[in-house]
């Protein structure tokens, strides 16, 4: 899903797989409290949310796989 909004505060992810609680978020400027709050909000809701640079293609594939696996197993 492109352009996901989390909760009442509308914390944004660029791309999200809500059923797998996995998301790619934009990198903000370091020390920006908005970015910190966003990451905390996603974390608190049980998401794996990282910036595109922090995810590798393998990471994502593996994460989705694992989340899938545990959901079914």
């Amino acid at each position: 899903m492109v352009g996901y909004e989390l909760g009442e505060q509308g914390w944004q992810a660029e791309i999200a797989w809500p059923d797998r609680l996995t998301a790619i978020v934009l990198s903000g400027s370091t020390g920006d409290p908005e970015t910190e709050d966003r990451d905390r909000a996603f974390g608190a809701a049980g998401w794996h949310a990282r910036t595109a640079r922090d995810w590798s293609a393998d990471d994502i594939a593996e994460l989705i796989e694992r989340t899938n696996g545990s959901a079914h197993g």
């Binding site: 352009g3 996901y4 909004e5 509308g10």
Partner: peptide, 18 residues
């Protein structure tokens, strides 16, 4: 607008809707 956070708007919007 695509990058903006929309707190307290009740309804969420996808990129296409934005």
């Amino acid at each position: 607008y695509f990058r903006a956070r929309r707190p307290n708007r009740g309804r969420s919007l996808t990129r296409g809707e934005r």
